[in-house]
Design a protein around this nucleic acid. Structure first.
Lengths: 156, 156
DNA sequence: ACTGATTGTTTGCTAGGTAAACAATCTTGT
DNA sequence: ACAAGATTGTTTACCTAGCAAACAATCAGT
């Protein structure tokens, strides 16, 4: 039984690809949705504000936990300490944050938003909010809430 | 108002990191859930069957659309044609699929499962199903269905 | 038979992450 | 007080997964 060469029936150029049992897998749909969200983010927020989802997340954590150290940030974002370095470099190069000295510890840096960083984040937040709403435009407000609620309960 | 140095109140070592407005963003929770799913997949399926989520997806599409070409696979998976090459190489090296000749087109390959590939996929599917259920163990069957249904409607 | 499109591949690039080693610095046990 | 050990940020090397462009081989249409 051949699945290809369906063009004898109709000249519909659509592929009609089957995904088998994956349509019942949560992980599959999770990945699909996430990739789609990422792409849309890139085409809107990244385009306009030159910030990636990762950088945005870091920025929010810094903004909401002023003075935290790089190690704390790494732990909060669940990435390696060494991964943080280039991220912080980028944000500092953009003038959004600073590495401030920590009074009683000359090893670590205290991460803080700059004035410009706060202004930029406000603008970025706007763009992100718009994108986020756009992305879930097919859902009602209630459904959106349900979805977030369910996502929160995943993964132990 | 300082957010840090809470250790004067109690010696709870917990970080208590705030994520600000991100807790209301769908994209944030989507990413979190997906990363968690990926990690759990790596610790179970990849561990036991030496297959990544990406490879598994490819394998399913090949299994369910036998004879499709690399370009068709690329389009189905929404990745570049050139990205497919190493994936197909890996799957072929593992003996799971073969690049078969296409009768009237010497340019393209017809991708098909090997006998061993079919056996392996059956085992892998089992592991994936278990992982997928495990990952959503906190949800009822109904909730799981609702979640998948909502995810399907996202993204344009 | 030419022209143009398609297919698979290679090469070079990027983003994001890990792991190990390291110097500087802090902390702790005795 | 101080040696031993732990932490912090950094660098380096490595890995995966993706894109983009160039390319030879091959096919399709006129």
């Amino acid at each position: 039984m051949r699945a290809s060469h369906a063009k004898t029936v109709s000249d519909a150029a659509e592929p009609e690809i089957s995904h088998g049992v994956m349509v019942d897998e949560l992980g599959f749909h999770l990945r699909r949705a996430q990739v789609a969200a990422f792409k849309q983010f890139a085409q809107t927020v990244t385009q306009a504000e030159d910030i990636t989802p990762g950088l945005y997340g870091m920025l929010q954590v810094i903004a909401n936990n002023p003075g935290l150290t790089q190690s704390a940030l790494a732990e909060a974002m669940e990435v390696d300490r060494s991964s943080i370095v280039k991220v912080v470099n980028q944000l500092e190069d953009k003038g959004l944050i600073i590495r401030a000295a920590v009074p009683n510890d000359r090893r670590s840096y205290s991460l803080r938003m700059t004035a410009q960083g706060k202004l930029s984040l406000a603008r970025i937040e706007d763009a992100v909010m718009r994108q986020d709403r756009d992305f879930s435009a097919a859902l009602t407000e209630t459904e959106r809430g349900v979805l977030i609620g369910l996502l929160k309960r995943l993964g132990k």
